[in-house]
Amino acid sequence: MKKEQYRIVRNKRIAPGTFELVLEGNGNVDGEFVHIAIPGFYLRRPLSICDKGPGSLTIVYKVVGKGTKVLSEMTEGTVLEILTGLGRGFDPDACRGEALLVGGGLGVPPLYLLAKELKARGKKVTAVLGFNKAEELILVPQFESICDAVTVSTVDGSVGVKGFVTDAIAGMDRSYDYFYTCGPMVMMKAVCRMVECPGEASLEERMGCGAGFCYGCSIETKNGPRRVCKDGPVFKKEELSW
């Protein structure tokens, strides 16, 4: 963990209530998420990393409350104090063959960096990305540019397969060696039950410290209590008591 200052380079609305935040700072950021201090709010906001490069960091977030609302109004040049090096992320080396990525809504962005890492290892990558409706689509062209196949589903059927990601997966006549999923808990549970191969899921829980010492975000797993912020947020399917 490190406490660092990052400057906002871009904070742009990319879908209703959804923003792409690009930050610039020193060095390379490790970890699955960053914990951002927002002036006027007592606790930090944990946000997943969507993409990163040398000294830069991209986060896609949704305005879900007062804190993220304030964040969405911050302008270029504003300096944010963030904690980096937090969380245990997806393991691209766990996939031996073909990978299936399943993202739902705001669960899509954290899979982007993973998709790049899998492709860098020469894996075949299929992505299934689910949204409520056409206007809420995010990052689909970016996934299309790096993945071998991308299927989009929307609940209202305005784009792609009508229904949930599970409906899209049911319509795909193939098997995979490993899956990675991030999205609403009900979606991830359904994916874990439906997809037969081993895989991992990125969980969400209300956090306190974000660094594993307050025990505010514990979940029960088959291996005993685990902290979402430190032992996760990514857990193997077989660890989860789903």
């Binding site: 007592y42 505010g216 514990s218």
Partner: peptide
């Protein structure tokens, strides 16, 4: 194991755990 989650609530000038 402790209590079920959510275990944390943010407040003005503080928090509940």
């Amino acid at each position: 194991y402790g209590n079920p989650t959510p275990r944390i609530a943010e407040c003005e000038g503080g928090m509940i755990n």
